[in-house]
Amino acid sequence: MTAAVPETLSVVVEREMPFPPEKIWRALTQPHLIEEWLMKADFKPDVGHDFSFRADWGVINCKVLELEPQKSLAYSWDAYTLRSVVTWTLTPTEAGTRLRMEQTGFQSNQPQFYQGAQAGWPKFFANLEQVLGRPE
């Protein structure tokens, strides 16, 4: 008899933003901007780069997995017992850019992480929109 594979869950947040992909890309990849809307980070846009997000509650260990400038970015997101992947996709639209974030890998026995992500990502998106809306 084989053990049942736990179900994995994903959190998706998708929003059309009135900004060009280049501007959103900068906010997703420049550490001083990332800190303003998400957390302090030592991010570099290089595949294979290990980095971390730091908050007062702890550290999230990450690694850049995929990168296609101004189109997509994926990195691992490992905190405590959570092993997940965050993928950003930027799609140009007539009004600006459709930004999609998907965090995959939540185990069904990790409701606190899943619920935290469901509550947290919309707030991060709101913060991101504020940063993007400022004059450069």
Rank of each mutant, 00 (worst) to 15 (best):
V47A: 08
P122F: 06
P122L: 10
A4F: 13
T89I: 15
K63E: 12
Q103G: 00
P6C: 04
W88A: 07
R54D: 15
F53C: 10
S108K: 06
Q70Y: 05
E16Y: 13
P111K: 10
A4Q: 14
F19V: 05
M101K: 02
E102P: 00
Q118C: 14
W121N: 03
I60H: 02
V47G: 03
L90V: 02
K40S: 14
D56I: 06
I24V: 14
Q118S: 04
W88Q: 01
K71V: 14
Q112G: 09
Q70I: 08
Q112M: 13
P135R: 13
Q107C: 15
T97K: 00
N109T: 11
N61R: 14
D42E: 14
Q115M: 15
Q115I: 11
Y75N: 12
V13D: 04
L33D: 09
Q107H: 12
Y80M: 12
K44V: 02
D50W: 12
G105C: 04
L28S: 03
Q30M: 08
L128C: 01
P21H: 04
T8S: 07
L9F: 03
E136Q: 15
W77V: 02
E102G: 06
A95F: 09
P69F: 01
P31G: 07
K44P: 11
P122A: 07
A119L: 12
I60M: 01
R134F: 08
V11N: 03
R54C: 14
L38G: 00
A117H: 00
P45Y: 11
G48H: 03
F19C: 06
E36V: 05
R26Q: 15
Q118T: 08
F43M: 02
V59S: 01
E66W: 10
Y80N: 15
W57E: 11
L65P: 01
D42N: 14
V47P: 00
Y80G: 07
E22R: 12
A119W: 13
F51V: 13
E129I: 05
R100Y: 10
P111C: 09
T87E: 09
G58S: 02
S10Y: 07
D46M: 14
F106D: 00
W25C: 07
M101W: 01
W77E: 05
P92E: 09
W77F: 07
A27G: 03
F125I: 13
T2M: 11
K44I: 08
M17T: 08
N127L: 03
V59E: 08
R98I: 11
L82Y: 03
Q110W: 12
W88D: 01
W37V: 07
P21D: 06
Q70W: 03
A27Y: 04
